[in-house]
């Protein structure tokens, strides 16, 4: 029950993109079409889950026993950067079209603040190992949910008659704001 609560909390109630406003760069950049958005969400979910796993291990098995907690940001960044490299190589190997579609946003997962934020939140909330993994997976699922909803809305917006000044980035930001308002409705869920 506790695990389910953590999952829903990370995915919906405290959605990283729409509640904490972390990771907006790929959220806006790769949400033009649903296909790449799903892939981006999956790649981010993978990186988030792996990050949660590896950073939990590093933090609790290496940094805490050696009293090196002050190294958490440095070592977490190291973990994230390596994982993103790995994902990048993997995507490039498996699917060149997907690699081209994700473009610059794939290596930019490295600097996606949602992922570093996830690792730091996980330490702050003092989750145990399993909880940490669920937390990471939930955060990734929430990111995927947000980016896919956004992509769906934006494909519809392509056909809409948007007033000239709002075209492009303007309407995207307004849509993101409305979505964030909608997600605030989940606040009383837990």
């Amino acid at each position: 029950m506790n695990l389910l609560l953590i999952f829903i909390s990370a995915a919906v109630v405290n959605n990283y993109v729409l509640t904490y406003f972390l990771g907006l760069c790929p959220f806006v950049g790769v949400s033009k079409k649903i296909g790449p958005a799903v892939s981006m969400g999956l790649a981010t979910t993978f990186v988030m889950t792996m990050t949660a796993t590896v950073t939990w291990l590093i933090y609790h098995l290496i940094l805490v026993p050696l009293k090196l907690e002050f190294l958490q940001i440095v070592s977490f960044i190291l973990v994230i950067a390596s994982l993103v490299q790995l994902v990048e190589m993997f995507v490039r190997k498996v699917s060149k079209p997907l690699y081209d579609a994700l473009g610059i946003y794939l290596p930019l997962i490295t600097t996606n603040c949602a992922i570093l934020g996830l690792a730091l939140f996980m330490v702050m909330k003092q989750y145990d190992f399993i909880e940490g993994i669920i937390f990471g997976f939930g955060a990734g699922a929430g990111f995927t949910l947000a980016i896919v909803i956004m992509a769906g809305i934006r494909t519809q917006l392509e056909l809409a008659d948007v007033p000239e000044p709002f075209k492009g980035a303007g309407i995207t930001m307004i849509t993101a704001g409305c979505l964030a308002l909608a997600f605030m409705g989940f606040a009383g869920l837990i």
Binding site: I58, I62, L63, L66, K67, L68, F70, L71, V74, S75, L78, V79, S82, Q85, L86, M89, F90, R92, K93, K96
Partner: peptide
């Protein structure tokens, strides 16, 4: 400790990545 820890971590990750880049090279 900090230097050694980060050195070891960096080495482990870079070794992992270099193996992966060989295996997954396009």
């Amino acid at each position: 400790y900090a230097i050694i820890t980060m050195g070891v971590l960096g080495f482990v990750f870079s070794a992992g990545l270099s193996i992966a880049s060989k295996k997954l090279s396009v």
